[in-house]
Amino acid sequence: MSQFSNDDHKLVDFLKQHRPSVPAADPALEDRLFDAIVATAQPTSLADRRASRSRRSVAWLVPSAIAAGLVATVVGYRTLMPAQPSATELASLEAFVESNWQGTLNNTSDEAPFGDVATN
Protein backbone atom coordinates (compact mmCIF):
# COMPACT_ATOMS: atom_id res chain seq x y z
CA MET A 1 0.00 0.00 0.00
CA SER A 2 1.12 3.51 -0.62
CA GLN A 3 2.01 5.81 2.23
CA PHE A 4 -0.22 8.79 2.97
CA SER A 5 1.25 12.24 2.73
CA ASN A 6 1.34 14.52 5.74
CA ASP A 7 -1.78 16.32 4.54
CA ASP A 8 -3.65 13.00 4.50
CA HIS A 9 -2.58 12.20 8.08
CA LYS A 10 -3.90 15.57 9.21
CA LEU A 11 -7.23 14.86 7.51
CA VAL A 12 -7.49 11.39 9.06
CA ASP A 13 -6.75 12.79 12.50
CA PHE A 14 -9.36 15.52 12.03
CA LEU A 15 -12.01 12.99 10.96
CA LYS A 16 -11.24 10.69 13.88
CA GLN A 17 -11.50 13.58 16.32
CA HIS A 18 -14.77 14.98 14.95
CA ARG A 19 -16.66 11.84 13.94
CA PRO A 20 -20.25 11.59 15.19
CA SER A 21 -21.21 9.04 17.79
CA VAL A 22 -23.13 6.00 16.63
CA PRO A 23 -26.72 5.97 17.93
CA ALA A 24 -27.80 3.12 20.16
CA ALA A 25 -29.66 0.29 18.47
CA ASP A 26 -33.39 -0.03 19.14
CA PRO A 27 -34.05 -3.57 20.38
CA ALA A 28 -37.65 -3.54 19.08
CA LEU A 29 -36.74 -2.28 15.59
CA GLU A 30 -36.71 -5.73 13.99
CA ASP A 31 -40.14 -6.61 15.38
CA ARG A 32 -41.58 -3.29 14.18
CA LEU A 33 -40.15 -3.86 10.70
CA PHE A 34 -41.65 -7.34 10.42
CA ASP A 35 -45.02 -6.06 11.68
CA ALA A 36 -44.97 -3.30 9.05
CA ILE A 37 -44.10 -5.80 6.30
CA VAL A 38 -46.93 -8.12 7.30
CA ALA A 39 -49.38 -5.21 7.52
CA THR A 40 -48.55 -4.01 3.99
CA ALA A 41 -48.53 -7.50 2.51
CA GLN A 42 -52.07 -8.37 3.61
CA PRO A 43 -54.91 -5.94 2.95
CA THR A 44 -56.75 -5.36 6.20
CA SER A 45 -59.94 -3.62 5.19
CA LEU A 46 -62.70 -4.91 2.94
CA ALA A 47 -62.06 -2.11 0.44
CA ASP A 48 -58.38 -3.06 0.22
CA ARG A 49 -59.29 -6.70 -0.39
CA ARG A 50 -61.77 -5.73 -3.11
CA ALA A 51 -59.18 -3.47 -4.77
CA SER A 52 -56.56 -6.21 -4.82
CA ARG A 53 -59.14 -8.69 -6.15
CA SER A 54 -60.17 -6.29 -8.91
CA ARG A 55 -56.52 -5.74 -9.90
CA ARG A 56 -56.09 -9.49 -10.22
CA SER A 57 -59.28 -9.83 -12.26
CA VAL A 58 -58.13 -7.08 -14.65
CA ALA A 59 -54.82 -8.86 -15.24
CA TRP A 60 -56.41 -11.46 -17.52
CA LEU A 61 -58.16 -8.81 -19.63
CA VAL A 62 -54.98 -7.62 -21.38
CA PRO A 63 -53.94 -10.98 -22.88
CA SER A 64 -57.57 -11.70 -23.77
CA ALA A 65 -57.89 -8.37 -25.58
CA ILE A 66 -54.69 -9.03 -27.52
CA ALA A 67 -55.89 -12.51 -28.53
CA ALA A 68 -59.31 -11.16 -29.57
CA GLY A 69 -57.64 -8.46 -31.66
CA LEU A 70 -55.49 -11.03 -33.44
CA VAL A 71 -58.48 -13.25 -34.16
CA ALA A 72 -60.48 -10.28 -35.46
CA THR A 73 -57.57 -9.28 -37.71
CA VAL A 74 -57.23 -12.76 -39.21
CA VAL A 75 -60.98 -13.18 -39.72
CA GLY A 76 -61.33 -9.69 -41.18
CA TYR A 77 -58.42 -10.25 -43.54
CA ARG A 78 -59.90 -13.53 -44.76
CA THR A 79 -63.34 -11.97 -45.17
CA LEU A 80 -62.17 -8.89 -47.05
CA MET A 81 -59.73 -10.74 -49.32
CA PRO A 82 -61.18 -10.98 -52.85
CA ALA A 83 -61.99 -14.40 -54.26
CA GLN A 84 -59.68 -15.94 -56.87
CA PRO A 85 -61.07 -15.40 -60.39
CA SER A 86 -62.05 -18.43 -62.45
CA ALA A 87 -60.19 -19.53 -65.59
CA THR A 88 -62.86 -18.02 -67.89
CA GLU A 89 -62.72 -14.67 -66.07
CA LEU A 90 -58.92 -14.65 -66.39
CA ALA A 91 -59.12 -15.46 -70.12
CA SER A 92 -61.68 -12.69 -70.65
CA LEU A 93 -59.54 -10.18 -68.74
CA GLU A 94 -56.44 -11.19 -70.68
CA ALA A 95 -58.24 -10.76 -74.01
CA PHE A 96 -59.54 -7.33 -72.94
CA VAL A 97 -56.10 -6.08 -71.90
CA GLU A 98 -54.52 -7.48 -75.05
CA SER A 99 -57.05 -5.81 -77.36
CA ASN A 100 -56.63 -2.47 -75.57
CA TRP A 101 -52.85 -2.63 -75.82
CA GLN A 102 -53.05 -3.54 -79.47
CA GLY A 103 -55.07 -0.36 -80.09
CA THR A 104 -52.57 1.85 -78.27
CA LEU A 105 -49.41 0.40 -79.74
CA ASN A 106 -50.58 0.33 -83.35
CA ASN A 107 -51.77 3.78 -84.49
CA THR A 108 -54.02 3.01 -87.45
CA SER A 109 -55.25 6.52 -88.14
CA ASP A 110 -53.41 8.99 -90.40
CA GLU A 111 -53.74 11.80 -87.89
CA ALA A 112 -50.86 12.96 -85.77
CA PRO A 113 -50.81 11.21 -82.39
CA PHE A 114 -51.28 14.51 -80.50
CA GLY A 115 -54.01 16.15 -82.62
CA ASP A 116 -53.13 19.39 -84.48
CA VAL A 117 -49.49 19.57 -83.47
CA ALA A 118 -47.23 19.44 -86.53
CA THR A 119 -44.15 17.27 -86.46
CA ASN A 120 -40.80 18.08 -88.10
Rank of each mutant, 00 (worst) to 15 (best):
Leu70Lys: 11
Arg19Cys: 11
Ala28Trp: 00
Asn100Lys: 10
Asp35Ser: 11
Phe4Cys: 07
Leu61Ile: 15
Asp8Arg: 08
Ser57Ala: 14
Ser45Ala: 01
Ser5Arg: 09
Tyr77Leu: 13
Lys10Met: 13
Pro43Val: 02
Phe14Gln: 13
Asn120Lys: 08
Val97Asn: 08
Leu33Lys: 12
Leu46Met: 04
Leu70Arg: 14
Met81Pro: 02
Leu11Arg: 14
Leu61Phe: 03
Ala59Arg: 15
His9Gln: 13
Gly115Phe: 00
Arg49Ala: 02
Met1Lys: 03
Leu33Ile: 13
Leu80Cys: 07
Ser57Thr: 11
Trp60Lys: 15
Pro85Thr: 02
Arg53Ala: 14
Gln84Trp: 10
Asp26Trp: 01
Leu61His: 07
Ala68Trp: 08
Ala59Tyr: 08
Gly76Asn: 06
Arg55Pro: 10
Met81Val: 12
Pro85Leu: 04
Phe114Lys: 03
Arg55Asp: 12
Val22Asp: 06
Asn6Pro: 07
Thr73Glu: 13
Leu29Met: 10
Ala47Trp: 00
Asn6Thr: 14
Ala72Ser: 10
Ser54His: 05
Leu93Asp: 12
Leu80Glu: 05
Val75Cys: 05
Tyr77Arg: 04
Ala95Leu: 10
Ser45Gln: 01
Ala87Gly: 02
Val58Phe: 13
Asp35Gly: 07
Pro27Glu: 02
Ala87Trp: 06
Ser54Phe: 00
Asn6Leu: 13
Thr119Pro: 03
Val58Met: 15
Ser5Asp: 15
Phe96Gly: 10
Gly115Trp: 00
Asp48Pro: 01
Val74Pro: 03
Leu46Ser: 03
Ala28Ser: 08
Glu111Ile: 06
Val38Pro: 00
Asp26His: 01
Leu93Ala: 12
Val74Lys: 08
Arg78Thr: 14
Ala25Phe: 04
Thr40Lys: 10
Glu89Thr: 00
Arg32Pro: 03
